[in-house]
């Protein structure tokens, strides 16, 4: 796999949420607003990059039998650090993301990539994989939250995470027709189900086209 392929892998082909179906808990919970989604995406990407680098660096000295507990301790340390830093510098984002910040520890994406990629590849490749997967995750949650926020409230508002009062950009399309249940938990399941169905439909369509082209 070329370096560029490793990077692109996490974005589309093996997108952690849309393809691998990992990290669903957070995908459903924090996608109520685009601001939250971007904040979480950045946090997850940061942890992913650091954890992939560290685990790739120590992969040769960790005894095989305890590699999972060791990876977990490394990831837990990183996540707790991110939690403390967010509490200090981005308090509003910290409050809206709530328990899902520490829950990044058990986000299958991080442990999954550590186990399946970083423990078997060199530093630079692991870094690329982390960036790709992190961006893929962020892309996915932004898409889901944009859908939910748009349909649920009629518009999208982006706040500055470091200064919650400041609105970076906002637009409002159809407040009167908003279906507010999309911002509720039930709406989260529906949105994700619909989006996954659409993506799967698109993949089937492309696969059928490829098959037809072959037959011809």
């Amino acid at each position: 796999m070329s370096k560029l392929d490793i990077l692109k892998n996490g974005l589309f082909k093996e997108n952690p949420i849309f393809t691998l179906l990992l990290g669903m808990c957070s995908a459903l919970a924090i996608t109520t607003t685009v601001t939250n989604a971007i904040g979480m995406g950045v946090a997850v990407t940061a942890v992913l990059i650091c954890s992939n680098i560290i685990i790739s660096a120590i992969r040769k000295i960790v005894p095989n039998e305890i590699r999972i507990p060791v990876y977990i301790v490394v990831i837990a340390t990183l996540v707790k650090s991110v939690q403390l830093i967010m509490n200090a510098y981005t308090p509003e984002l910290y409050t809206s993301l709530g328990v899902f910040i520490p829950l990044i520890v058990v986000n299958c994406i991080i442990l999954g990539r550590a186990e399946s990629f970083a423990s078997k590849h060199g530093l630079f490749d692991s870094l690329l994989d982390a960036i790709g997967m992190g961006l893929g995750y962020t892309l996915a949650v932004v898409v889901i939250s944009a859908f939910r926020e748009l349909v649920g409230t009629g518009g999208i508002t982006l706040n500055n995470p470091l200064n919650a009062e400041q609105v970076l950009f906002s637009f409002n399309l159809f407040k009167d027709y908003a279906i507010s249940s999309f911002t509720s938990p039930a709406g989260a399941f529906l949105s994700l189900g619909l989006i996954l169905g659409v993506i799967e439909g698109y993949r089937n369509f492309k696969a059928n086209r490829a098959k037809k082209a072959e037959v011809k």
Binding site: L21, S181, S184, P185, A186, G187, A188, F189, L190, L192, G193, L194, L196, G197, V198, E200, G201, N204
Partner: peptide, 23 residues
């Protein structure tokens, strides 16, 4: 079930309906 929705998508939609009921 329509082919595109088989598996995870329809499961999630079902969960959504259950969530409405729980609400």
């Amino acid at each position: 079930v329509p082919a595109a929705f088989k598996g995870a998508p329809i499961a999630l939609i079902t969960a959504g309906i259950m969530a409405f009921a729980m609400a």
